[in-house]
Design a protein around this nucleic acid. Sequence first.
RNA 1: GCGCCCGUAGCUCAGUGGAUAGAGCGUUUGCCUCCGGAGCAAAAGGCCGCAGGUUCGAAUCCUGCCGGGCGUACCA
Length: 727
Amino acid sequence: MVTTFQTEERRAAALINDALEALGYGRREFDMRAIPFTGVWGTSASVCYQIATEQVTAEHAAELEGLSKKEAKRRTQELVRQRAQEIAEQVAARLREVGGFASVEATNGYINITFDTDRFSNELVRAVLTHGKDYGRGEPKSERVMVEYSQPNTHKAFHIGHLRNVCLGNALSRIMRFAGFDVLEANYIGDIGLHVIKTLWCYQRFHRGEEPPREQRGRWLGEIYTEADQRLNYRQDVVDLLNDLARNDPAFREAVDRMMKELWRAHPVGEDVAYLLGQIAHAREIKPDAFYDDATIAHFWPIVGKQLTQMLEAARQRPPQQTAERAAGEPELPTPADYEAWLERWERLAAHLDWWPHVPEWQREVRQTFQLWETKDPAFVALWKETRDWSLEEFNRIYEQLDVHFDVWFYESEVEELGRQIVQELLEKGIAEISDGLPVVKIDEKLGLEKETYRTLPILRSDGTTLYSTKDLALTKIKFEQYHVDRAIWVVDVRQSLYLQQIFKVMELWGFAQAAKCYHLSYETVMLPTGAMSSRSGNVVLYEDVADRVLRRAREIIDEKNPALPDELKERIARDVGLGSMKYGMLMRDNNRVLVFDIEEALSFEGHAAPYIQYAHARACRILEKVDTIPTEGLHFVDLTPEEINLIQHVAAFPSDVERAASEYKPLVIANYVYELAKRFNDFYRACPVLQAPEPQRSARLALVAAARQTLVNGLGLLGIAAPEIM
RNA sequence: GCGCCCGUAGCUCAGUGGAUAGAGCGUUUGCCUCCGGAGCAAAAGGCCGCAGGUUCGAAUCCUGCCGGGCGUACCA
């Protein structure tokens, strides 16, 4: 959408160029920028600096030659600044003759042009009110874009980390569509793979016949997955803790003799005692399969626990270590908090010492279960389908709540076969080769790169089962060939960054021109104040739990602020405000920054958050509902206050920010925009009475309120956030 | 080793090579007889990690270093 504001900016640039030419400086390429001062609506050019620099360096070459580098620099700066101002004054004088601008001034070497606010405000307000929900929409573009996002795994929990993905992907889709692209929103469900096999193994082995609570079957399945993972990794987890202790705590290493004596008394298996003694004393890695006796760890564990408790006590007694006191090179001693964390891990593992002997057998069983899938065992496939639906039901409930709707649903299970065929094709074409017994693409080699950049991508397991890459190659081919996608976007965690670059390069090697327009919108991990989320350690925050709390809190506040509203309306507002707050929290932070999710912050509806913006909207609605019609013609925007100008200016900037958000794939641009707009509206609201203002001011302000309200709605809409009229 | 990301106010973070680096939270002090106080105003708080370089001009671009995170062939 080209606004009159932008047209006027271009006209100004053209006239400046005419003036430069007439003054003998020649035409230049330069951008116009908004004047950065508050309460002024206009555009500025810094082109005079360009010209001044050229002239100064030419005219003062001899003088500058004789100076030291530093002095020359300072002198140039001084001369350029003066000259830029002189040129700006000449240009300004000429532009004033041409006329058509409210004012033209030369300040600090810039040419500042202010707009005829009366005329442009009239045009702006009329444009916003006639276009309505389409204000800011871009010209239709012929390109088809597919945004693949969400990609949840069935049989696993949907946690707060998944929310960041959904919010980003959905907002990006809305923005791209609004900017004029033909957008397809695609979901890609991870309904098969090792995690599904593990879950189903654990279900069959330990939970068959249990009836999960109906509404929570998806979540229940996620718990089974966690349990499966804990069981299968049990030995490794135990050994990891011992290794961490031996590596990071000298006191633990020093205690090894005493601990081993105790272990020997309880469980005299010489080889194991000797092994533990040697590895711990020298902080060498303990391996989970190096034990002779399955019961050794069970006997050793209480001893470790006792030692940890003692060390925690000792650490608490110890005065806090001063960094200065510590000799150089000496490692930092563990803090009480370290010991508490270790003890927590110790306790969790202590609860399942009976698992240790079974781990190898369980791992075998999982491999057998994988075979049931590979051979499409009917009973197993039926179980898979049934449990898969439990998860999908939960996902759909969440998408419904978030107002997220996909045009295309892909499933990993549906691209396995095509993936295998593709591996064959790539092998035949010589793009892939067998290395160490499995098909891989040696990308750097194929591209002729000397430095390692894309490395090697395995595309099938050596046992013939499919990998994520096998399926992704197939899926990407489908996107290109069946959906005719010109530009494919993946919204995926940053940790898969190299992996996706590899996929793009393989598509390129394979001959797909669209590979050049593949884009990975990566985002950093969502962490908890307690650290990284990990389903195995149980440190996860589930989406539905957070949503429940946030919506309940929103409801409490509405009950407080607006007790008279009908129940149904209150419920709807609570949903709009609560969900808006959650979504905004996910979008207001740059995507390549780690996001620490703090529930307390999510429950606060004050300050820089969605409710602030929604509140500005509700205030605007309060004003507008008190008049019958919004005047749009012949308004008088004269003697404007700075608050009015700032608001008008920002409303006018919406279309170009939409464009920028789309071209940079950055929903954050809109998140910032909409907050700033609300802020400026609140400033205006305080400073400028509307209903009590005398005519013609009253009409102009009413129209401005209506325009700002509409722009708030449009901007929030791009983030998937509703704008309730009352809250 | 190599590669990517982050480092800005006490904390959490915005910031498109341009003019005086901004918000929120927290702290202190004010503002509801006035379109809704989920709001507003004021104060305090900054070697924009460090050092060079490019430029008329650098928080922004380039190089090196320091600190933190992540990735690096059969997990997804």
